[in-house]
Amino acid sequence: MEVRTIKVFTTVDNINLHTQVVDMSMTYGQQFGPTYLDGADVTKIKPHNSHEGKTFYVLPNDDTLRVEAFEYYHTTDPSFLGRYMSALNHTKKWKYPQVNGLTSIKWADNNCYLATALLTLQQIELKFNPPALQDAYYRARAGEAANFCALILAYCNKTVGELGDVRETMSYLFQHANLDSCKRVLNVVCKTCGQQQTTLKGVEAVMYMGTLSYEQFKKGVQIPCTCGKQATKYLVQQESPFVMMSAPPAQYELKHGTFTCASEYTGNYQCGHYKHITSKETLYCIDGALLTKSSEYKGPITDVFYKENSYTTTIK
């Protein structure tokens, strides 16, 4: 009895394709271990004539594949690729409408935090270190965002349907971005203890939790000093293409032309909904596939993004 075979390709990165001759009487799992086709788990399936010449994702289970996976995804987590594939199996079914010149995501599976993050990423200057993220990001900007969303979920250790947080998501993504040249110098002034300067680099240099107003941050924000008295913390120097200011959701007025974009969060910790506000020729609110415009805006804002380049204080 002759062994019926077909020729397929296996890959971990969709760049390096490895030619395989597979036995049609055995499952993919018996031949390769966990195997995925377009995100779908085909591990328990036997090869079919229609699979001839198709590319299958496999887990990096030998040295060659491990090197290829690390170079593309910059992670050695053995569960990463499987999590990416199972997320992709959902995100490829989502709709990605162009809204006001940006790629958004039609609401499904509690994905409003991903839509808000995706919209924000198209408006701030950011370059990702893992080629996987950078490639998928370019495709997302062009309207094909399924891979990018699935990668975000995998890097953030999230599953489809789980509630997510924009600030946490951005923080994970910033860790995989090139923020080497970003720098922030802060000064804390206390009447009792004097003053202390701190220099922050990388992710810490672009994120701040405690106030939404970048102007206020430049002037000074009140913080408790270690001595128990009130101290003032203010920005001395900022070198970065953008800054992200966050605070627990509270009524906040966004003035046209003073910011790049913002995240609105309605609801409580267990259950809520994100919308995205962007400042173009007027203010726009993007909620999944829905767009509304207004000249002014007041609502429960939790993150505001500002364009920056270089700032030095005039406070002496």
Rank of each mutant, 00 (worst) to 15 (best):
L59H: 15
K54E: 12
F174S: 04
H18L: 07
C261P: 03
E2Y: 10
I301A: 00
A40Y: 13
P249Y: 00
Q222G: 11
T258G: 05
A136L: 04
I152Y: 01
A87N: 10
V206S: 03
G257I: 02
C225K: 02
K127L: 09
L17S: 09
T292S: 12
K127V: 12
R167T: 03
V206H: 04
F148H: 03
N111Q: 05
V188F: 05
T258C: 06
C225L: 01
T10M: 15
K95H: 15
G53N: 14
P60S: 08
H18W: 10
E296L: 11
Y28K: 09
L200Q: 14
Q270M: 12
N110Y: 04
S171V: 08
P78F: 04
T198P: 00
R141E: 11
Y137G: 03
L151A: 01
L81N: 14
H48D: 15
P131L: 05
T103A: 08
E52R: 11
N61A: 13
M244T: 04
L163T: 08
I105E: 06
T11K: 07
N178E: 13
Q222K: 13
E125L: 05
V304Q: 02
A117I: 10
N49W: 09
V8Q: 01
L81M: 13
Q197M: 12
G161H: 04
G39H: 08
D13L: 07
L291Y: 15
T313A: 13
G33D: 05
L65C: 08
A177C: 14
E308C: 06
K219Q: 13
D41L: 11
L114A: 05
C182E: 01
D165P: 00
D62T: 14
T199M: 04
T192P: 02
S171Q: 13
S213E: 05
I152L: 07
L200I: 10
Q122S: 06
N187Q: 12
T64L: 12
L212W: 02
C112T: 01
D287I: 11
F259V: 06
K7R: 13
E253H: 11
S240L: 01
V185R: 05
K93H: 14
Q270S: 12
K46G: 10
D63V: 07
Y137M: 15
G39T: 12
T19W: 11
C261D: 02
F56Y: 10
D38T: 10
V185H: 05
N49L: 13
I223R: 03
V67R: 13
G39Y: 10
S263K: 01
F9D: 09
H74G: 11
H18V: 10
C285G: 04
Q251P: 14
K316V: 15
F217V: 06
A247C: 06
Y284F: 09
P47S: 05
H276V: 01
S104R: 07
A140W: 06
Q196L: 08
K7F: 11
C285A: 06
G288S: 03
E281Y: 00
L173H: 00
L163Q: 07
Q30K: 12
V221F: 08
T27Q: 11
K255V: 12
K275N: 01
A117H: 03
R83M: 07
S294T: 14
E125N: 09
Y138L: 14
F305I: 14
N100D: 09
F32L: 14
E215C: 03
N49P: 13
T43K: 09
F128L: 04
H276N: 06
L65M: 11
I223C: 15
Y113K: 06
W94R: 06
P34T: 13
P249L: 04
G202R: 04
C225S: 01
K46I: 10
L118M: 04
Y84F: 13
E215S: 08
N89C: 14
G82H: 14
D63Y: 08
C225R: 03
L133E: 03
P248W: 05
A177P: 01
D180Y: 08
V8S: 04
N129R: 15
T258P: 00
C261F: 04
A250Q: 15
L291W: 14
C190T: 06
L212N: 00
Y28M: 04
P78I: 09
G267H: 04
V304K: 03
P60I: 08
Y84K: 05
G164D: 05
L254E: 04
L163A: 10
D41R: 09
T91Y: 02
K54D: 11
N309Y: 06
N100S: 14
Q134V: 09
Q195C: 15
Y137C: 06
L173M: 12
G220S: 04
Y297A: 02
M85Y: 11
V166I: 02
P60V: 08
G267R: 06
F32C: 09
S104L: 03
T10G: 09
S86D: 13
K218R: 05
Q216W: 04
M245V: 01
G33M: 06
S50Q: 14
S294F: 15
Q237L: 12
I124S: 03
T192Y: 10
I15L: 06
I6W: 08
F70A: 10
Y297G: 00
P131R: 09
D77Y: 05
S310C: 08
Q175S: 10
Y96T: 05
L102K: 07
L102V: 08
L114G: 01
Q197D: 07
V203I: 08
Y137S: 06
P300R: 09
F56W: 07
T198Y: 14
K158Y: 01
M209T: 14
W107F: 10
A177G: 06
A150V: 05
Q98E: 06
I277P: 10
G228C: 06
A145L: 05
V185A: 06
V243F: 04
R83Y: 03
Y138A: 15
D38I: 09
T10H: 07
D23L: 10
T260C: 12
N268A: 10
V67I: 15
V42F: 14
Q222N: 09
P97I: 10
A231D: 01
K106M: 12
V236Q: 01
Y57C: 10
L88S: 04
Y297K: 01
G228I: 05
P130W: 04
L212K: 08
C271K: 14
W107T: 00
R4I: 14
Q30G: 12
V188E: 06
V203M: 11
R66L: 13
Q197I: 07
H51V: 05
P300V: 13
A231E: 05
P97A: 09
Y155H: 00
N129K: 15
V21P: 12
P224R: 14
Y274D: 00
T226K: 15
A247D: 07
Q31G: 05
E68V: 06
M244A: 02
Y73G: 06
H273C: 04
F305A: 01
K93D: 14
Q230R: 10
G299L: 03
N309E: 15
P97C: 12
N16K: 06
A108W: 02
F217D: 02
